[in-house]
Nucleic acid binder design. Structure first.
Length: 448
RNA sequence: CGGGGCGUAGCGCAGCCUGGUAGCGCAUCUGGUUUGGGACCAGAGGGUCGCAAGUUCGAAUCUUGCCGCCCCGACCA
């Protein structure tokens, strides 16, 4: 992609509205533009990151055996009257009327709708289990949106719903999502820690929040350091096998957010130098809620004994748009973003310091074509901006690798290679830089 | 929703208290000089001062109402 054709409105100054670094950088790097409180337009650069995250989430859901579908953003109120939540949900739900004066709403979640869809097509326990998911925009009319996309009113969410005949099998569905989530966040370069969450009126131990550690995280978290070193399940894991040992392993050590943190228990069960008090961002939440919706909404299946029983359900959310912010919180420095390869808007940037110069243009084109042929996504800065501005801009948008091409280096047949993550810079020949980056990108995109 | 703050050019801000031709820096455009880490000189364009009433000879400035945004709190992916 040529930068001159792209739309990348970067800001030199930090807009005063933005309080946290991810919000500031998303505005400065031209990733989003605010359209109202908690409502953002995704500009091309931000959109590319969003889509990469979405795709990783999708692949790991599919791997775990969930099936993708798509439910609408607008829902009729009657569905919600069946579950009793139309009244219960309060002002957080955005209520709309259509032209016939029917009550509608912009969906804050989809339990009711998926339950309706499920009950229309499943009659017998023999059709179970099922896991369905979609990735769709939600709207929650938060009292106070803040922190940019981290806490917007409109947000992109992946939500999966599981259907099982009893709690024992529902636990297996829960475990699949548990493992899928560990893998999903790890693939983005994020270390996520499952933490026990409040299960509300349902009770039981089947609710976990997945927390990403970040110094600027929104909530205080407490856990055993041992959790950080635990290995993520590999991609060849058998999701139909027994996942319980993995869940037991990850839930064996103390981990809690400040809301349910028990200082006494923390000190009793975790050795002093294994205690980690840190800050984190919630990026996923999984929970089992049994027949909360299936009972009132009559989503029944014939059980093995021939009697109808309400299906046992769970739901599993990932904050896709929030992850963009979380990733920046986890990967940035004073100069800008530092994207992990898997979610980078482009894998590499090529800076032509002197567009119009024959040698520079030719070398850039050669590098661009070479990288493209190797499957590397490249943003080519062939604008007439000054060198310093180009460097600052490339650092700000945070592409993992940069190639800096100018007449001075080309006299010696060299270009500069720069790695954004640690600032490593090396001069090398045109041919070698293509090979170096192509290999690095391939290696960093590989996952297990 | 309670408490606080702010709306003046694309961005960051001054001017408001004490009413009298709307300013500064950055960005943009033109010309020139520069040219490997956010240049310099000269010139130019761009704002019904959030909206609406009111007070006044005269309102960005004073009054009232409304709208929007941000911060702290309770709430949440």
């Amino acid at each position: 992609m040529r930068l001159s054709r792209f739309y990348l409105p970067v800001l030199k100054e930090t807009p005063s509205d933005a309080q946290i670094v991810s919000h500031q950088l998303m505005l400065r790097a031209g990733m989003v533009r605010q359209q109202g409180a908690g409502i953002y337009a995704w500009l091309p650069l931000g959109f590319r990151v969003l889509k990469k995250i979405e795709q990783i989430v999708r692949e790991e859901q599919n791997r775990a055996g969930a099936v993708e579908m798509l439910m609408p953003t607008i829902q009729p109120a009657n569905l919600w009257r069946e579950s009793g939540r139309y009244e219960a949900y309060g002002k957080e739900m955005l209520r709309i009327k259509d032209r016939a004066d029917r009550d509608m709403l912009f969906g804050p979640t989809n339990e009711e709708m998926i339950t309706e869809i499920f009950r229309a097509g499943v009659r017998s326990y023999k059709d179970l289990p099922k896991m369905l998911y979609h990735i769709q925009w939600k709207f929650r009319d938060e009292i106070r949106p803040r922190f940019g996309v981290m806490r917007g009113r409109e947000f992109l969410m992946k939500d999966t719903y599981s259907f099982d005949v009893d709690e024992a099998t529902a636990r297996q569905s829960y475990n699949k999502m548990f493992v899928a989530y560990l893998r999903t966040f790890a693939r983005m370069g994020l270390k996520s820690i499952p933490m026990r969450a409040d299960t509300g009126p349902i009770g039981g131990d089947l609710s976990h929040e997945f927390i990403v550690l970040a110094e600027t995280g929104e909530s205080a978290v407490f856990c055993d350091k041992g959790l950080i070193d635990m290995d993520c399940p590999k991609k060849d894991i058998d999701f139909d096998g027994d996942l319980q040992p993995i869940i037991d392993q990850f839930t064996s050590l103390y981990a809690a957010t400040d809301e349910i943190h028990d200082a006494a228990e923390f000190e009793k069960t975790v050795a002093a130098n294994d205690r980690l008090a840190a800050r984190g961002i919630e990026v996923g939440h999984i929970f089992f809620f049994g027949d909360k919706y299936s009972a009132p909404m009559k989503a029944l299946v014939a059980g093995p004994e021939g009697r109808d029983v309400p299906v046992q359900m769970g739901s599993y959310g990932v904050g896709v748009s929030r992850l963009v912010g979380a990733l920046i919180e986890a990967y940035h420095d004073d100069d800008g973003c530092k994207w992990p390869m898997a979610v980078a808007p482009f894998h590499a940037g090529v800076i032509n310091l002197k567009p119009g110069d024959n040698a520079a243009d030719k070398a850039c084109q050669e590098i661009y074509d070479g990288l493209a042929a190797a499957g590397v996504e490249v943003l080519y800065d062939e604008t007439r901006a000054r060198a310093g501005e180009k460097f600052a801009r490339m650092d700000l948008i945070g592409l993992p690798y940069q190639v800096i091409v100018g007449p001075r280096g080309l006299e010696k047949g060299e270009v500069e290679f720069k790695r954004r993550a640690d600032g490593l810079r090396e001069t090398m020949a045109v041919g070698k830089v293509v090979e170096t980056i192509a290999n690095a990108v391939k290696a960093e995109l590989r996952y297990s």
